[in-house]
């Protein structure tokens, strides 16, 4: 697992793996896969909260194809929070969900049109190797977490994003 820091590597190793190879067009198997996704996400969020490193909220629509939530990153003791959304592609889990931070669309070069974050050259190969065992929780841990850690300080330091006053007191939760 070249390309990730030690902390991310040890965290992702603790997120339980999934077994059902199914996407949104696969009926009953998709229900099964969604259960596995929920269980992996629940475990990951519990781990984060236990380590006091809670950093996202996420929930799906009724059929599990559209997910919305928030994610945040603390830089110089200030919390920067962003809307997070993604669709589950019809070819999931052969292809990973493309994570979107719509508020940052057009503000950084490390982003494709529509606010989709630009992942490192290491992400897709690792996802491919671990198909169908990786799920949404793994994508957040290996994709979005490191992206925020790399981009938010840069965006703040270059003045592209400013801290919102109302976020300054909150410690956790949206």
């Amino acid at each position: 697992m070249e390309g990730w820091d030690v902390n991310t590597k040890s965290t992702v190793a603790k997120i339980p793996l999934l077994t059902t190879r199914a996407g949104p067009r696969d009926g009953e198997l998709w229900t099964q896969r969604r259960k596995e996704e929920f269980m992996a996400l629940i475990k990951y969020m519990e781990m984060n909260k236990a380590k006091d490193s809670d950093w996202f909220r996420i929930a799906p629509n009724a059929d599990g194809t559209k997910w919305k939530g928030k994610c945040w990153y603390v830089h110089n003791l200030l919390k920067y929070e962003f809307d997070l959304q993604f669709d589950i592609p019809v070819t999931y889990p052969a292809t990973a969900p493309e994570l979107e931070l719509p508020e940052l669309d057009g503000k950084t070069a490390k982003m494709y049109r529509g606010g989709k974050i630009c992942l490192t050259i290491h992400f897709k190969p690792l996802w491919a190797k671990n198909c169908p065992r990786f799920g949404i929780a793994h994508a957040l841990c290996l994709g979005l977490g490191p992206w925020l850690a790399a981009e938010v300080p840069h965006l703040v330091d270059t003045g592209v994003i400013q801290h919102k006053e109302k976020q300054s007191q909150s410690s956790s939760g949206p």
């Binding site: 339980p16 793996l17 077994t19 259960k35 929920f38 269980m39 969020m45 929930a59 956790s172």
Partner: peptide, 24 residues
Amino acid sequence: EEAFVKPEGDLDDLQKQLEALNAF
């Protein structure tokens, strides 16, 4: 034992558990 999720429980219950974690 811990490497894989154990597929059990009801989808709605699991979603409620996730929502509970989202709530605080």
